[in-house]
Amino acid sequence: MSDHPKIELQGVSKSFGSNHVLRDVSFSVEPGESMTIIGGSGCGKSVMLKCILGLMDVDAGKIFVDGEEITGMKAADHDRVRAKFGMLFQGGALFDSLPIWRNITFALTQGRHKRSSDMRATALENLERVGLGKEVLDLRPSELSGGMQKRVALARAIAPRPEIIFFDEPTTGLDPIRTDVINKLIVELVKDLGITALTITHDMGSVEKISDRVAMLFEGRIIWSGPVSELRHSGDVHVDQFVQGRAEGPIS
């Protein structure tokens, strides 16, 4: 299994009516690698993640995880593959009807109320990993600030010890200091836990801190990919415009 990429997309296309969100997208992520997809708002980054997670079906193309094709997989098999994934949603997507510790252990109990004391300990262990303490265990998500919610969501994503973790705009809406905290956490988690990471973002600061490799998605296509060190001299006008954040250029 180890000679396969962790995640591989081959010619994936997805459209909603006449809106072609993904057109023939192909790339792969190696085990233990931190890959980042950049691109403007609404360029199909989130849709791509949802396709890999199996939350949406692709129209064409294939997606492989550990060399196993997941497109067109049966629900039961898909569930088994999903056990490898963790996901940090853009808005946190914490369950607001449950206390923090039940949120963090949700994947372990699959929503059932069992082994409470074990689960509280597990929740605390994961909270500490993201720099929070036991004082938040019994709070509700709505009682936390945005940055804390994001950290709890990160704790929830890593609690089942996934092999692959997806970060959907992990730093959007956070102040520069919180942004750096989250960036550092992502780097630590990827290193410490040996997780393969796939991040989508348009925050250039975090791209350079967290990624090994970067690809740029534009109008549903991957127009450039390479190591993060080459990002600033890619030779592609679209990438240059995006990286430098200029209003003038081929991307309007």
Binding site: L55, A83, A93, F95, A107, G111, R156
Partner: peptide, 21 residues
């Protein structure tokens, strides 16, 4: 509200079936 705040998607990625839960 759970749908638009992605809580339903989160539930699926946490391997819990929203239909059953």
């Amino acid at each position: 509200t759970m749908r638009v705040t992605e809580q339903i998607d989160a539930m699926v990625t946490l391997r819990t079936d929203p239909y059953r839960y």
